[in-house]
């Protein structure tokens, strides 16, 4: 019974569901329906999010997961190529590390 031993860490699946919801709010339900969002989806290539949409997404992440998660600071250490390659699972892992 792993869950009993673990503290209140959110599971990867729970974080994914939350992020999926944020993406839907940012880019609109009608577009999300056409996509298959998975943890392997990349922000720019697969989800085609532009920078201002990533700003809106980051803000939702910060507001939801709290001040321990310096999402903008984390992103600011990446160069453009890394941000372009960034996948949903990278963010899930980052949030898990911060918890």
């Amino acid at each position: 019974m792993d869950q009993l031993i673990q503290e209140n860490k959110l599971s990867k699946e729970e974080i994914f569901e939350t992020l999926n919801q944020f993406i839907t709010e940012v880019i609109g339900e009608e577009f999300v329906e056409e996509m298959d969002i998975t943890p392997a989806s990349s922000f720019t290539k697969d989800l085609e999010m532009d920078s201002i949409e990533i700003v809106a997404f980051s803000e939702k992440v910060k507001n939801h997961f709290g001040p321990n998660i310096d999402f903008t600071g984390w992103l600011s250490n990446m160069d453009l190529d890394e941000i372009i390659r960034l996948k949903l699972e990278d963010i899930i892992n980052y949030i898990r590390e911060c918890q």
Partner: peptide, 24 residues
């Protein structure tokens, strides 16, 4: 353009020393 031109790189560098305000 929009505020994202600063948000990911330049603004966080300056935020180490200053309050940074960005707006569209």
């Amino acid at each position: 353009s929009n505020l994202a031109v600063y948000y990911f790189n330049i603004a966080p560098m300056l935020a180490k020393h200053f309050r940074v305000v960005l707006f569209d």
